[in-house]
Simulated assay, not measured.
Amino acid sequence: MSLSPQVLLSNAARDKCIAKLKELPAFMHSGVKPLYKASVLLPLFVQNGEVHLLYTLRSSNLKAHSGQVSFPGGKMEEAEGVVETALRETEEEIGICTQDVEIWSDMSPVHSRDMTMLITPVVGLVENLDIQNLHPNIHEVEEIFSVPMSVFCNKENHGHFMFNEMPLPLFLHGKHKIWGITGFITHMFLECFLPSEAYKVDFMRKGFTLNELMPSKL
C-alpha cells in the first residue's frame, strides 16, 4: 500500500478521512464540566516526498507539561471557535500563517488528564511548509519536529503507557516519545487517515513508566 502524498492527500482520500473523523465517538467524561476549552492543530505537510505530522516540544520553562511533545494549540478565547483558536495559537507558537492551512475537519473533543480542560483537535494541511523557516516562540516551544507516516506504520515504534489501568498509545521517533493525550489524538487521527492495511498497531509490545516519560526535557 502506497503512503505517497499523491495517494494520501488525494481528494478521494481526503473526503474519506473527513467522513471517518466525523464518525469518531465522543471521548468526554459525562457529568464533568471543564474549566477551560482549548484546541490544537494537527498539521499535515509534505517533506521529502512523504506526508508528515508536525509536533512541538514544549519549553522546559513552562509550568504545565514542560518538556513534553504536543501539537500546537492552546486555550480558547471568548467568542472564538475551535478552528480559529487552533490557527491563532499555531501562528503565535510556531509562525505558520493561517492562510497557509487548509482545514479538513475537527475531531471529537477530549478531556485533559485532570479533567479541567476540553481539547478539540483540528486537522489541517499546510502548503509548502519548510520547518527550517518556522519561527518558534522560545517562551513556549523548545523544538519543532515532524514524523513521517512510515514511522507511524512501523510497529517497532509502538508502545504504551498505562493510565487508570488502560493502555494508551505511544509512538517512538528518535529521541522523542509521543504519549498521553497527544499520543491518543495521533492514533485516532491515523485510524481515519491511513489505509487499514498499512496502519497495523502493536502498542502492547513495550510499556513505559511515568518516570521514563516525564524526564523528556530533551
Rank of each mutant, 00 (worst) to 15 (best):
F145A: 11
H29A: 03
I181F: 01
E140H: 13
A86Y: 11
K155F: 02
D130R: 10
H52Y: 04
F193R: 02
M76F: 11
E80V: 06
S30K: 15
T120G: 08
M1R: 12
R113M: 03
L118G: 00
E142G: 03
C192M: 06
N48Q: 12
T209L: 15
V7K: 10
G95C: 02
R14E: 10
K200Y: 13
V69K: 03
Q6W: 07
L125A: 09
G74Q: 10
L3V: 02
L125D: 05
T98I: 08
H52T: 11
G49V: 15
N48L: 03
P215M: 13
R113V: 01
K63L: 10
M214T: 10
D202G: 11
E93I: 09
M188C: 09
Q68H: 07
T98L: 04
H52E: 11
V46Q: 06
L62E: 14
M166E: 15
S2D: 10
A13R: 13
V122L: 01
P169V: 02
I18H: 10
P169A: 06
N11C: 15
L24F: 03
A26L: 13
A198F: 00
V151C: 06
V123D: 09
F193N: 08
S112V: 00
N48V: 13
T209C: 07
A64N: 03
S39G: 01
E127I: 12
F184K: 05
F193P: 04
P167I: 03
M149I: 05
I178N: 01
L21Q: 07
R14W: 02
G183C: 01
L3Y: 10
F152E: 04
Q99V: 05
F189H: 13
S60Y: 05
L194D: 11
M115D: 00
L210N: 06
K37T: 15
V141S: 02
R14G: 02
F184H: 08
H187S: 10
Q99T: 09
V201D: 14
V69N: 00
M204R: 07
L42M: 14
E80N: 02
V110Y: 04
A19E: 13
S2F: 12
F152H: 07
I138K: 11
I94D: 00
M204A: 11
G124Y: 12
K20G: 13
L9D: 15
E78P: 07
I94T: 00
G49K: 01
N164P: 05
D202F: 00
V40W: 10
I181M: 13
G95K: 04
S66L: 03
L210C: 09
V83C: 14
W104S: 14
K16M: 14
Q47A: 07
L170E: 01
M204K: 12
